[in-house]
Structure formats: structure tokens, C-alpha cells
Measured scan of single mutants.
Amino acid sequence: DVEEQIRRLEEVLKKNQPVTWNGTTYTDPNEIKKVIEELRK
């Protein structure tokens, strides 16, 4: 469920934690926001 994935990513973003997505770890909040934007398409 895309909405659920977006919610999880936004939670991690608020906590300033790194996100691992498709084998890539993102630590930059701007990169995480880009992943969220991609999911919304």
C-alpha cells in the first residue's frame, strides 16, 4: 500500500533517521522527500 509506505517514510523523516529504500540508504531529508514524491506519482 503506497499510502502506508508514504506514512512510514514521513514518520522516519520527522525523527531525522536514515531510510533504506530499495537497497539504498538515504540520510538526507531532501532525498527522503524525493522518494516520497516519487511514491505519490
Score class of each variant (00 low, 15 high):
residue 29 P to S: 09
residue 17 Q to A: 10
residue 4 E to P: 01
residue 1 D to K: 09
residue 16 N to P: 06
residue 3 E to K: 10
residue 12 V to W: 13
residue 37 E to V: 05
residue 38 E to M: 07
residue 24 T to C: 05
residue 29 P to I: 07
residue 12 V to Y: 15
residue 7 R to I: 10
residue 36 I to S: 00
residue 32 I to H: 00
residue 6 I to P: 02
residue 28 D to I: 02
residue 22 N to G: 12
residue 18 P to K: 11
residue 21 W to T: 02
residue 16 N to Y: 06
residue 17 Q to R: 06
residue 13 L to F: 08
residue 33 K to H: 09
residue 25 T to V: 13
residue 12 V to M: 15
residue 5 Q to R: 04
residue 3 E to P: 06
residue 40 R to A: 04
residue 27 T to L: 06
residue 11 E to V: 05
residue 11 E to N: 09
residue 4 E to D: 11
residue 31 E to S: 08
residue 21 W to E: 01
residue 31 E to A: 07
residue 4 E to H: 06
residue 33 K to W: 14
residue 40 R to W: 09
residue 12 V to N: 14
residue 23 G to Q: 04
residue 10 E to R: 03
residue 7 R to G: 05
residue 27 T to N: 13
residue 17 Q to G: 11
residue 18 P to H: 13
residue 25 T to A: 06
residue 26 Y to L: 14
residue 3 E to W: 15
residue 32 I to K: 00
residue 5 Q to M: 14
residue 37 E to A: 12
residue 29 P to N: 04
residue 12 V to S: 15
residue 25 T to Y: 11
residue 17 Q to Y: 13
residue 16 N to M: 11
residue 12 V to H: 15
residue 4 E to C: 03
residue 26 Y to A: 01
residue 14 K to A: 15
residue 39 L to V: 03
residue 27 T to H: 14
residue 36 I to V: 04
residue 8 R to D: 08
residue 39 L to F: 03
residue 1 D to G: 11
residue 32 I to S: 01
residue 33 K to E: 07
residue 21 W to A: 03
residue 5 Q to Y: 09
residue 12 V to C: 15
residue 25 T to E: 11
residue 22 N to Y: 09
residue 35 V to T: 03
residue 7 R to N: 08
residue 19 V to E: 02
residue 32 I to V: 09
residue 15 K to L: 15
residue 1 D to V: 10
residue 14 K to H: 12
residue 34 K to D: 05
residue 38 E to D: 14
residue 15 K to A: 13
residue 23 G to T: 03
residue 3 E to F: 14
residue 34 K to E: 07
residue 11 E to Y: 02
residue 27 T to I: 05
residue 9 L to H: 00
residue 17 Q to H: 09
residue 23 G to D: 05
residue 37 E to C: 07
residue 16 N to A: 07
residue 20 T to Y: 14
residue 40 R to P: 01
residue 14 K to T: 12
residue 24 T to L: 11
residue 40 R to Q: 07
residue 3 E to N: 10
residue 2 V to T: 05
residue 37 E to P: 00
residue 26 Y to M: 13
residue 8 R to Y: 15
residue 41 K to G: 11
residue 19 V to C: 05
residue 41 K to A: 14
residue 38 E to G: 07
residue 13 L to G: 02
residue 18 P to R: 05
residue 37 E to K: 04
residue 22 N to T: 02
residue 18 P to T: 12
residue 18 P to Y: 07
residue 33 K to N: 07
residue 22 N to S: 04
residue 8 R to W: 15
residue 35 V to L: 15
residue 8 R to A: 15
residue 32 I to W: 02
residue 29 P to G: 06
residue 22 N to W: 06
residue 3 E to M: 12
residue 12 V to P: 03
residue 31 E to Y: 05
residue 35 V to Q: 04
residue 41 K to S: 12
residue 20 T to C: 05
residue 20 T to I: 15
residue 1 D to W: 15
residue 11 E to K: 05
residue 26 Y to K: 01
residue 15 K to G: 10
residue 6 I to N: 00
residue 28 D to R: 04
residue 10 E to V: 05
residue 23 G to I: 02
residue 1 D to F: 12
residue 15 K to M: 11
residue 12 V to K: 15
residue 18 P to D: 09
residue 34 K to H: 09
residue 39 L to Q: 01
residue 11 E to C: 04
residue 13 L to V: 09
residue 8 R to N: 09
residue 9 L to S: 00
residue 12 V to D: 14
residue 11 E to H: 07
residue 20 T to W: 13
residue 9 L to D: 00
residue 16 N to W: 07
residue 6 I to Q: 01
residue 38 E to A: 14
residue 29 P to A: 09
residue 40 R to N: 10
residue 7 R to W: 07
residue 40 R to I: 08
residue 26 Y to R: 00
residue 25 T to I: 14
residue 20 T to S: 10
residue 19 V to L: 13
residue 5 Q to F: 12
residue 14 K to D: 12
residue 7 R to D: 05
residue 34 K to S: 08
residue 25 T to C: 05
residue 36 I to Q: 00
residue 3 E to V: 11
residue 17 Q to S: 09
residue 30 N to Q: 14
residue 33 K to G: 09
residue 38 E to Q: 12
residue 23 G to M: 02
residue 30 N to E: 15
residue 41 K to E: 12
residue 38 E to W: 11
residue 19 V to M: 09
residue 19 V to R: 00
residue 6 I to C: 03
residue 34 K to G: 08
residue 24 T to P: 01
residue 1 D to N: 11
residue 26 Y to D: 00
residue 5 Q to L: 14
residue 1 D to E: 11
residue 29 P to E: 05
residue 35 V to R: 04
residue 8 R to M: 15
residue 22 N to E: 11
residue 20 T to V: 14
residue 33 K to Y: 13
residue 7 R to K: 13
residue 24 T to Q: 14
residue 41 K to W: 11
residue 1 D to I: 10
residue 31 E to Q: 09
residue 33 K to P: 01
residue 1 D to A: 09
residue 20 T to P: 02
residue 41 K to D: 08
residue 40 R to T: 05
residue 27 T to D: 07
residue 17 Q to L: 15
residue 28 D to K: 02
residue 35 V to S: 01
residue 23 G to S: 04
residue 14 K to N: 13
residue 6 I to G: 01
residue 5 Q to V: 14
residue 29 P to T: 08
residue 33 K to C: 04
residue 24 T to D: 11
residue 11 E to Q: 12
residue 36 I to M: 05
residue 21 W to H: 08
residue 14 K to R: 12
residue 10 E to A: 05
residue 28 D to A: 05
residue 41 K to Y: 11
residue 15 K to Y: 14
residue 35 V to H: 02
residue 36 I to D: 00
residue 9 L to K: 00
residue 3 E to L: 15
residue 25 T to L: 15
residue 16 N to L: 08
residue 11 E to L: 09
residue 1 D to P: 14
residue 7 R to E: 06
residue 1 D to Q: 06
residue 34 K to L: 11
residue 11 E to G: 06
residue 5 Q to T: 14
residue 4 E to Y: 06
residue 25 T to K: 07
residue 30 N to L: 12
residue 19 V to T: 06
residue 13 L to K: 00
residue 8 R to F: 15
residue 9 L to T: 01
residue 20 T to H: 14
residue 30 N to W: 10
residue 6 I to E: 01
residue 35 V to I: 15
residue 35 V to Y: 04
residue 30 N to Y: 13
residue 23 G to Y: 03
residue 27 T to E: 09
residue 5 Q to I: 15
residue 17 Q to P: 05
residue 4 E to M: 08
